[in-house]
């Protein structure tokens, strides 16, 4: 039985990854997870300069999900290159560094600084964080604008040879248009979806709960919508898709692959059970055994008939 997958020439031992922003650098999970075993760790998004993030409360639970408005708190790209990547290199997991910025030049500068001696295996271009604002931009998120998405992807591709994944937002009228724009611009893979815009109001105080008023919804509540996004995009693009959105169990992971995902990322589930990635990996392996599937790649897109 083979669990290995290949994306843009990078060989991953398996398609079960930890999602950005839910796994820290991986170090936070050492007591629970064997970093030699999971396919990849996608780091908490880093920006050119360190950021302090949004005011508290940054987290609130909602029905079968949670809202967050962390606001890209991070120590900056140089810290990532100096500390995070060498730390993760001690393990067999592949390293995907998630980057974000205020504009195109931030993304290219991050990509440039990642392209030295301590380079990651892939870069995830996060164009879809719902909790930051970009001055002068027409849309709240870069990934709401196909042309801008294409521009940033192209610029990053010009800057570095490290293969890239473009992470999309579901907060659009048609996610397939943005996916196609990113593919045309040369992205090596697509990751979808980031969180859905949402908010919570406290009926007692009469005020919004989150410090920044709105946030991004994740968890089981968004799974059916995320699954559809993967299903729809799979029909329109050739590049590999990495499925994200409320994946809690091995069954969820398999469903995303059947919808068209080559790999999946486990996010909110890490908070519920820090061993989720390991459990999902074991469960997916058992599923393949039960179904007599020899190569996990056979699952991808099978729901399309």
């Amino acid at each position: 039985m083979s669990l290995a997958i290949n994306i843009a020439g990078v060989k991953f031992e398996n398609p079960i990854w930890a999602a950005s922003g839910t796994f820290g650098t991986g170090e936070e999970f050492l007591d629970f997870v064997d970093l030699d075993k999971i396919g990849a760790v996608v780091t908490k998004t880093v920006t050119l300069e360190a950021r302090v993030g949004n005011p508290a409360p940054r987290i609130v639970e909602t029905a079968s999900g949670m809202l967050n408005s962390i606001g890209l708190e991070n120590k900056g790209i140089d810290h990532c290159v100096k500390e995070t990547i060498p730390f993760l290199r001690k393990y067999r997991t592949k390293i995907v560094v998630s980057i974000a910025g205020n504009g195109l030049s931030d993304y290219t500068e991050c990509a440039r600084r990642l392209s030295g001696k301590n380079a990651p295996d892939m870069i995830e271009i996060n164009l879809s964080c719902p909790n930051v604002t970009h001055k002068g931009a027409k849309h709240a998120l870069f990934a709401q604008d196909g042309a801008l998405t294409g521009e940033i992807v192209r610029a990053v591709k010009r800057e570095t040879d490290i293969p890239s994944i473009t992470k999309l937002t579901p907060n659009v009228t048609d996610i397939t248009e943005i996916a196609i724009a990113a593919e045309k611009a040369g992205t090596d893979a697509l990751a979808l979806v980031n969180t859905y815009f949402g908010m919570a109001i406290d009926s007692g105080t009469g005020k919004p709960v989150l410090g920044r008023v709105t946030g991004g919804l994740s968890g089981p509540a968004i799974k059916p919508m995320a699954l559809k996004a993967v299903y729809d995009v799979y029909k329109k693009v050739k590049v590999p898709i990495i499925g994200i959105g409320g994946i809690m169990t091995a069954e969820c992971a398999v469903e995303f692959m059947l919808a068209g995902a080559r790999a999946i990322q486990v996010g909110t589930a890490n908070f519920v059970d820090p061993r989720s990635t390991m459990k999902i990996l074991q469960g997916v392996e058992a599923h393949l055994g039960e179904k007599g599937i020899k190569d996990i790649n056979e699952l991808t897109g099978k729901a399309h008939g």
Partner: peptide, 8 residues
């Protein structure tokens, strides 16, 4: 465990 940076 310090990963989500929610409890700032």
């Amino acid at each position: 465990v310090g990963a989500c940076r929610g409890c700032a």
